[in-house]
Each structure stands twice: as structure tokens, then as C-alpha cells.
Design a protein around this nucleic acid. Structure first.
Lengths: 339, 339
DNA sequence: CATTGCATGGCAATCGGTTGTCAAATTGTG
DNA sequence: CACAATTTGACAACCGATTGCCATGCAATG
């Protein structure tokens, strides 16, 4: 039986170690955080005691005195959307590797929730990663001034961002469709508030003009599979033979609706999705889509944020990172129907 | 211009309010947390000042002195698995509604990571929800003694749990297959460490015996779509005409593999999945599966945990909650092939 | 009018660390 | 051997709240 309470009911504190070693608490703190500041002999005794008592620093207390919480907030507008799962996976992996904790928050597509969450996070997190922010440029800039921040898919001056470059992939998608003989294409737009959707449409219409093809925009549609039905109907009604769709969720919904209506994909209608989310490869038919390195984007966002937090670790702070996107051709695109 | 620094660069503290109102910090604390303890006039002045200074209590400090962190850890073995996305969505929703923060951690299917995470969480969270724990019964019981805990799909004596009752749905699935003329069925088992898989197999073999049907077990397979290939090959080789599969991920992988091998589902082989995850309804063919109320399970787990944390709010503490599961028939099951 | 009782608000300790400051101990140097 | 330089470790303030205890003041009671 040990003379020391090896397994107290209460987690060991720095004071327990101090008492055990007969030194002051501050010495213990230094031994663990600034080892060179403490005599090697004392240090080793302390470290041994720490191990014996199974000491883990109290993160709350650490946060209070040091101002660093070791946590990073990750704000996503809709935790329901598989797109964000990939992102979350990326941030989680990278944060964990760096010893940070992830605070995941669903802002429910609301700018108010987003703003109030950030205000709260200001005290309980060292920084935030904000995906597809619903805030205005001004609000976002103001928020970024108050705490380290990295946005994903939202480009605002002065705010470090990871941008998944889907706009440039839209021209690949368009070329793909043109090479299949399509000349009448629709862009199925996402939410009106989505900057990504707007930029993609910009890039697409520009590319269309350059190639002398007609591309029209349909929608806005909510980024959910259920919206696919309305989108599919709109596409059919407009007479186009191919659609480039805001995201895979809507695209998959369209696939289902077209099937219900007895239309064949790709014989009657070609569909190009965006993001290559989980499911895009096994839906029916498998979806041709613009493959985004979403998980990687999450990792890069974390790296950029951590670089902001610990500027010491060499290397300038990148404030903008563009992730390339490529077209993945599967079964949902095919030759344009003959008239 | 206001005489007060309405928007200081530093978040307002209780002392700022105290100074502004000419009272002590403790009075401010009471005015905000124990209003009846403070004169109504003073209280109103304080509350007004709090609003004016845009005061938000510092959660770290609160946690340190009160011992309550307002956070709940959610441990999942693999954040990659869509099953857990639904669960996370449920916990997130319910935690947020109750004003708690969710700390999401991926334990990477490792019992060690799980144990050390829990040890750390002991200080930074008020409780934990542990999904599909990889810990031994003893370790789990010990951990539960140290901090409030609710498990999901893991039944250990004395530890409150939410159990998704897939075992009982397996007999529904078996009946469904029998009614379609199948007499030779395989159970595609999940990880050897999975309690769910074991219990499902138990229930299934019992039901099979009662009905005089032959059911064999194949596997263990990792819960990933990639494992579906091996599982499909094993199933084909074993000569069965139908499979009840550990989860939808493997089932979807099997669907893909069978298609590659030129086998038709359900004409040549029927497949029943489990969980009804995102994608089960739009894969090819749509998957017959045991629909689990996963998101609801997450919500219930949170409710049970919060009931443990705040025992005051009437109603005894349930320590076990079984979520019913039903069979959802889609296109991946059909009549047994004729010999 | 004296006394009891309650409402109210301040003081100070506490939670578990971090960190600036300073004194004591050690080492090295002339 | 005395003195300066350098380690080393203790003291105490601080981070931002909470909370037990106490002093004050006012109203009600005998």
C-alpha cells in the first residue's frame, strides 16, 4: 500500500504535487511548462510525482490565467449537410493532431446565431473557423478583428480564407457537357445568400459566353435533396438537356425526381453535381461531379488558424488558400439527346 | 459620444459592471445569478449596465469557481462513419437547446484514446456521451463512477445507456426474407469488438432456429464501404441467397461489388442493411434496411445525461432507454432465386 | 423605546493554474 | 577569502467568476 493517495477521488492538482515534493506550486508549474527554469533534480522529482498522481492540468484554470483555451470553434451553417461532415472531419483531425479541442456549433443558417456564437466563443476559444458564413462583409471583418479567424468559402478582405475553387471547375464541367453535344445547359443555383453559388454562376456564364453556348440560371434552391424535385421539374420545363447543379445534395434529389418522372439520366438529361460528397459515387446513376478536397480544406483552415495563433513557428501567415477542384466523370452525364 | 467605453477591446467583466454601478463585484454576480438576493433597484441598474457593456460571463472563470463547465463531451469511434453524423446531429441539437456546448472527439476506434480523452474531459466537461465504446466493461464502469456518463449502444450494468434495438429488428428482417422464399441467409458481422454486432447475431440465430431456417455468420468486417467487397465475395462464395448486414456502409459496399461482379440485386442476392443512414434511400438499388432512430437516440442520450446533471427537475433518472427499430423495405430485397 | 429579524450588499477566500519579482543558494572569479 | 554573477525556488498578485460570512440599516414587534 502506498503512503500517498495515488488515486484520490478528486483529480490531482499542481498543489498536490507541490506538497508531495515539498516545493511551492509555482515551482511545479515551471517544472512542467518551463523545464529549463528549474533544477534538473527537482524537475525530475516533480515529473515523477506528476506521473504518480496521474496529473492532468485543469484546462479551465489554465485558460483563465494564460488566456489560451486550447479550443477552436468550428461554425457550420447546417450540420445536416454531408458537405460539412467532410469539413468537420478535416478540422477535427488536424486540431486533434495539434492538441486542440474542437467546439462544433451549428449556426442553423442564421446570421444572428452566428454572431452571438462568435461573441461567446471569444472567451472560450482561441480562434474560429467559419464555414459558409451568413454574416455581412462588415460584420465578418469586425468579428475577425476581435479574434483569430479563418473562413471557408467566403472571401472577405483582410480575413484569412480557404476557398474551394469550384468556379474554375465549372468551365471544365461545361467543356465536358459541350464535348458530349449539349448546347442548352442550366445552372441550378443554390441559396441566394451563398457567395459560392454567385461566384460559380459568374464563372459559368463567362465561360459559356466565351464558348458561345447558352446557359441559363434556374433557382435559387435550398441545399437539400428535397429541393431536387423542384429543381428537376424546373430543368425539364426549361427544355435544357444538361444541368450544372449547385451541390450534390440537390443533384441527387434531381436524380430521384427525374427517375420518378420516367426520365432517364443521362439519356434524357445530364446532371453535374458539385462537391463529391459521400453518396455521390453510389447513387443511381453515379454522379458526375466537381470533386472538392473538402476534408483537406478543413485541415488547411486549421493550419492557417494555428499559424495565426502561434506566429513563432516560422513561415509567414498565408491569408488565402485556394483549393483546386476537378471534374469527376461518372454515369450521370452522357451524350445530348438527338432531336 | 458615450462617457463609458461601450465597446472596449477587451470583453466586459463583472468588475467593469461593478465599477460602473458603484457596487461590489459580488453584488453584480448575485444580481445576475440570484436576482432575488439583490434589491430590485440595484438589480435593474446592474442589468442595464450589463446590457450596455455587452457583458457575457467568462465561461472559463465560471467553470473554475462553480465546477460546472457547461460542456458535454461526445465521443465517437469514427467521425467518418455517417451513422455518427446522425447521432452527432441529435446531440448537438439537444445540447444546444439546453444551453450546453458540445465537445466532439473522435476516439479513432482506440480504447486508449477513449480512456485518455475521458480523463481529460473529466475536468473540462460536465459529462460525456460515449457511442459504441471500445472500453472493457470494467473500465467503462470505473469511468462512469468518475463522471456523469451515458453510453449509446453499449449496455453495461450501472451505466445509463441508450440502446438502439436493432437485435429485435433482425427477426423482422429474417421474416421478411423468409416470406420472399429465402432459406439460406448470412449475417455479415461487424467488428469483433462491437457489442451491437454480437447481440444482433445472437438475436438472429435464435430467431433462425425458432423458424427452422439456416443462418450462418460471415466476417468480421470493418464498418466501411470498402469492406463491402470482401463481404460480398464471401457471401457469394458461401452460396446464400440473402444477407443481413451489420450496417448500411458495408451493405452499400456489397451492392457496388455485386454489381461489378455482374450479379443482380435483388434477383441474385438480397441485401438487408442496418441503420438507414444517409444514402441508403438513393443507392442502387435503394437499400432495404433496419431503420434506426439515430438522431433521436442522440437527443435521448443528452436528455438522460442532463437529467443526471440536474436531478432537481422532477422525474426519476431513467438509466436505460431502448429505441425501437423497424424494417424499411426498399429495392435491395426480392424473391429468392429459383433453382 | 429597546430588541429581534430580515433584507441587503461588501469583504475575502476559493477554484487551479501562470508569471513577475525578489531573496537565498550556488558557483565562479580576482 | 571576499565579492560578483548566475541559478533556483518561494511569495504573492492575478485571471473572472462564486459564495460563505459578516456588518449595516431598516422595519416590525413586544
Amino acid at each position: 500500500m502506498s503512503t500517498h493517495p495515488v488515486a484520490a477521488d478528486r483529480p490531482a492538482t499542481i498543489h498536490d504535487i507541490a506538497a508531495l515534493c515539498g516545493v511551492a506550486a509555482s515551482t511545479v508549474s515551471r517544472a512542467l511548462s518551463t523545464p529549463e527554469r528549474v533544477n534538473i533534480h527537482t524537475r525530475q522529482r516533480i515529473q515523477a510525482a506528476a506521473v504518480e498522481l496521474n496529473y492532468t492540468p485543469n484546462s479551465q484554470a489554465k485558460a483563465l490565467s494564460s488566456g489560451k483555451t486550447g479550443a477552436v470553434g468550428v461554425l457550420v451553417p447546417d450540420i445536416t449537410n454531408p458537405f460539412y461532415f467532410d469539413l468537420i472531419r478535416g478540422t477535427q483531425l488536424q486540431l486533434k493532431a495539434a492538441g486542440y479541442t474542437q467546439l462544433l456549433v451549428d449556426t442553423e443558417e442564421s446570421d444572428e446565431v452566428e454572431a452571438s456564437t462568435m461573441e461567446q466563443l471569444r472567451k472560450s476559444a482561441d480562434g474560429v473557423i467559419v464555414a459558409a458564413s451568413r454574416l455581412s462583409d462588415e460584420a465578418l471583418t469586425a468579428a475577425a478583428a476581435k479574434m483569430p479567424m479563418v473562413t471557408v468559402n467566403r472571401d472577405v478582405d483582410g480575413v484569412p480564407a480557404v476557398i474551394i475553387d469550384t468556379p474554375s471547375a465549372t468551365s471544365q464541367a461545361l467543356d465536358h457537357l459541350i464535348s458530349l453535344g449539349h448546347s442548352s445547359v442550366a445552372y441550378i443555383a443554390g441559396p441566394a445568400t451563398s457567395q459560392s453559388s454567385a461566384r460559380r454562376w459568374e464563372a459559368l456564364s463567362e465561360a459559356a459566353e466565351a464558348r458561345g453556348v447558352e446557359v441559363r440560371v434556374l433557382g435559387n434552391f435550398a441545399p437539400k435533396t428535397q429541393s431536387g424535385a423542384a429543381a428537376a421539374d424546373a430543368a425539364v420545363h426549361s427544355g435544357v438537356t444538361a444541368c450544372i447543379v449547385f451541390n450534390d445534395l440537390i443533384a441527387i434529389g434531381m436524380l430521384q425526381r427525374l427517375r420518378e418522372r420516367g426520365l432517364r439520366v443521362p439519356e434524357d438529361m445530364s446532371i453535374v453535381g458539385c462537391d463529391d460528397i459521400f453518396g455521390a459515387d453510389f447513387c443511381n446513376p453515379p454522379l458526375t461531379t466537381m470533386t472538392s478536397p473538402i476534408e483537406q480544406a478543413g485541415r488547411v483552415a486549421v493550419s492557417m488558424l494555428l499559424a495565426q495563433l502561434n506566429p513563432l513557428a516560422g513561415g509567414g501567415v498565408r491569408n488565402r488558400s485556394v483549393m483546386p477542384t476537378y471534374l469527376t466523370v461518372r454515369g450521370s452525364t452522357g451524350a445530348a439527346p438527338q432531336h
